[in-house]
Design a protein around this nucleic acid. Structure first.
Lengths: 110, 110
DNA sequence: ATAATATATGAATGGCTAATCATATTTATA
DNA sequence: TATAAATATGATTAGCCATTCATATATTAT
């Protein structure tokens, strides 16, 4: 397994904001501000994330008037789809992980 | 989409060491020290990761003599498998992301 | 050409957490 | 039961990076 590939893949997709952007783009193409609304964060932050997702080959851009419209790449669709499907299916099991939610935190925070 | 579910899922699976552990367990069940060898990190670190993966429902344990043998849960198999498959297939595109590899770093580090 | 809208970029910071070191616990064997 | 082997747990630290604020650039309309 290629370490750089694995790390880069997860770097790009595993941030909640970035994954939410991809999930939002599963539905339809969106402008930056539409994404900011959908994901409930600042425009500036969305732009930073989009630059990453663009570089990582997850999305495409086109211009429409004064807006830049982002779309999910076809190759990214199955990944995002399958992950969403899995999380929906195993949500309760996943949530039951108290390390990610409490233990680790409390171990660190004390 | 459930925010906690998404975050927890990625928290658990997106760390390189933890994902490597899951990948190693795709092949065969392993003891803690065998995992440490396979993943090339310290035993203590592996134990920390295993505690997380166990809590998150990715792996099971059983005792054999003085060793604890970890195995990949059946439900986790398709996820790990599909992600490995994807990374192998799109490795070059993913690696081409210069944000994850250089730009972001240089932006931050200056 | 100027103003307004949309988006991108730069710099700084604080929180999160993987790795490490040290130590405790558990099990097996002599 | 004392020792060794295997694993787990605790505490600390240093680095990564998402977010924020401030500002720059680009496009359209007046």
């Amino acid at each position: 397994m290629d370490k750089l590939g694995v790390k880069t893949f997860f770097f790009a997709i595993s941030d909640y904001s970035r994954f939410s952007i991809l999930a939002a783009l599963m539905e339809k193409d969106l402008s930056v501000n539409e994404i900011a609304d959908a994901v409930e964060t600042e425009q500036s932050n969305v732009s930073h994330h989009l630059a990453c997702l663009l570089n990582c080959g997850f999305v495409d851009v086109r211009r429409e008037g004064k807006m830049r419209i982002y779309s999910l790449k076809d190759e990214a669709r199955p990944i995002v789809g399958s992950i969403i499907k899995h999380i929906q299916k195993y949500n309760s099991e996943i949530i039951a992980c108290d390390i990610a939610n409490k233990e680790y935190i409390s171990r660190v925070i004390k």
